[in-house]
């Protein structure tokens, strides 16, 4: 399941990067930084990525999840800091939803 979520996130980042063309996002790994730091995407791209991953998750698992939620916004360690953290966060949200 985790691998599948990683693939969904990777596909969403790849699609986003067709427009952004950031070198840092070319080869997506669990360590790839998403939001924060000197590189990384901006807020509008982050919203789009989150929505695209929600759609991917809904299609793959037939479950609706909200990935920009209070938990994500309040937690001291942002779930959007890198792909690994985001994958874990999606997994947790999916478990909560089912």
């Amino acid at each position: 399941m985790k691998d599948q979520i990683f693939e969904i996130i990777k596909a969403a980042i790849d699609e986003l990067n067709e427009e952004l063309e950031y070198d840092e996002l070319k080869d997506v790994t669990p360590e790839t930084a998403i939001f924060g730091g000197e590189s990384g995407i901006d807020s509008l791209s982050l919203v789009r990525l989150v929505v695209d991953v929600e759609a991917g998750v809904s299609e793959a698992f037939d479950t609706e999840v909200t990935l920009a939620n209070e938990k994500a916004m309040s937690s001291r360690n942002s779930p959007y800091r890198n792909v690994a953290a985001f994958t874990d966060f999606v997994l947790a949200c999916l478990k909560d939803a089912s």
Binding site: F35, G36, A72, S78
Partner: peptide
């Protein structure tokens, strides 16, 4: 403010 928080910067 939300973004600053999320970025952790």
């Amino acid at each position: 403010i939300n973004l600053l928080w999320l970025s952790g910067d």
